[in-house]
Design a protein around this nucleic acid. Structure first.
Lengths: 291, 291
DNA sequence: CGCGAAATGGAACGTTCGTTCTATCGTGAC
DNA sequence: GTCACGATAGAACGAACGTTCCATTTCGCG
């Protein structure tokens, strides 16, 4: 009889999958742990960063135990070895976003969780939340102030965006229209763009948006304006964006994605804030700059 | 006095000691970097977490370079090897986003004085969060399923949106293009819209978006299609929307606002989910609906 | 077109890693 | 006292690591 070498039916992993769960289990069983394992338990909760970055050998030295003890500790809690336990500690550092946990739990609890297309729906909502959580960190208030300054001073604001970025500029175009801020939307009808840009002067300014993979047209148009001393403000997702070098001020904003489709929420929120801040500054200066 | 231009006799190692300094140096010298090193430079700033946790081999694979290139990159910036550069990225994760909390508090403290546009910015991010928190409640999974059904079956999907809703449909147009879903964007150039709509048949379907104050054109176009037995799915913000009566399925979605400017994040997340769900359903049915 | 320098890819190297294995230790039962 | 058994320390091992080295390619310049 070919018996599978599996003495215990529970040898299938019941290991905690996130740090909070792991912490709970450790605290719960801490009292009944052998001496050395208790020592590791205390160390792991007191120095989680060390566990995340260190090697088994270095951690063992710090915690004053043998490396093999770390392995036994990990296996004691259902992990295959020390390395897989370490992943929990690393994941904790990656996704440290306050409030995010609660939102995700709320999402899991809703009706959409059951249906298949519902998980797509929840996925995009979660991605949007993540994007927004990051955006405040990514945007420096001083830079934002400066961008508002530049664009509020401009006579006409040129909006440059293609493809995936186009919805952002088209929102700004709509809002600028309502707010009576003079603008030119570049990239709507092909052919006349160059003529439009040729009319730009130092008194104007431009706002360009482009995310990887960058539309070469947008980069070229931004460069064209920069060469003509038209100040350019840009929104992109990497310091290596071709837009950056043409810009007086630029913002680096990485959207979270679901299934490879990047959110637009953070960019949109940014665009709205910029638009309104510009209009507000103009209103206060009593200079509408409009038609 | 440290002279900026140094012919690089490599006298003393002047490696940056923290992430911000490193980032600054990389950005400063990125233009003069060889191809592969520039590639690493971009990757390192775009995926700092990967650098922190990964191994030289795994990072090299992700960044599509050789491990040795990573070492050369590190040495190029004054580090002894890749490992010591990696320490910088790890230290960055250890420090809990220093300064950010303070900056936020400072912003909240100074409501009107110094950084007024900062509060505008925070306001829009908060509004977007609120919108997203509501959207899962507002959208019924069954209705979503049905909408996906209708639109996935369609030969051509007509996208109807004006003004404030236009960014939403223009994102969908972009995504449909990428996903090879046949669509017609209604409302781009005035005049030919009616001719476009006249070509719609029962085999097609439409997705209309309109929020209060409703664009009368959008409502009229939706009605026109409904009369011709073209199924219409719509996204709006009230049960009394003129779109509702023309629609087979409609969604009521109220965006939160800041200073009277409504967010678009919930609508965008909805649009993305709908778009991807449609494409996913088509893919599974092996029916692309035309190229 | 040809030359020299710089950059690159990839194999090879010595090191260090996490894990396993086993002899020894400590402890409670009888 | 000694037997049984889990816990422990530490050596041993294969795998994977970061680094180095060198042949080849690419680039800039006369």
């Amino acid at each position: 009889m070919p018996t599978p070498e599996m003495p215990t039916p529970e040898s299938t992993t019941e290991a905690p999958q996130d740090f909070e769960a792991l912490k709970a289990v450790i605290l719960e069983r801490k009292a009944q742990l052998p001496k050395r394992l208790k020592q590791v338990a205390a160390y792991s909760l007191d120095h989680p960063d060390e566990i995340a970055f260190g090697t088994a050998a270095s951690i063992a030295t710090s915690a004053d135990v043998q490396p093999s003890t770390l392995v036994r500790f990990a296996q004691h809690f259902g992990f295959e070895g020390f390395s897989s336990l370490q992943q929990i500690f690393r994941a904790r550092l990656r996704e440290r976003t306050p409030g995010y946990e609660d939102r995700l739990k709320a999402l899991r609890g809703n009706d959409h969780a059951t249906l298949e297309s519902g998980s797509i729906f929840n996925g995009f909502v979660a991605a949007a939340h993540r994007s927004l959580d990051n955006v405040a960190r990514a945007i420096h208030p001083e830079a934002f102030e400066k961008a508002v300054d530049i664009l509020a001073k401009a006579d006409t604001i040129f909006l440059i965006a293609k493809r995936r970025s186009y919805p952002i500029s088209s929102y700004m175009a709509y809002a600028f229209g309502k707010l009576r801020v003079k603008y030119q939307h570049v990239g709507t009808a092909a052919g006349i763009d160059d003529d439009l840009l040729a009319m730009a002067t130092k008194q104007d300014a431009a706002f360009a948006v482009s995310f990887s993979p960058y539309a070469s047209e947008s980069a070229a148009q931004a460069r064209f304006l920069a060469n003509r001393k038209v100040p350019v403000v840009s929104l992109t997702d990497s310091a290596f964006s071709p837009l950056a070098e043409s810009s007086k001020v630029w913002f680096e904003l990485v959207e979270a994605d679901h299934a490879g489709f990047r959110s637009l929420s953070a960019s949109m929120a940014f665009a709205m804030a910029l638009t309104v801040a510009i209009a507000e500054k103009r209103r206060r200066q009593g200079d509408s700059g409009g038609s």
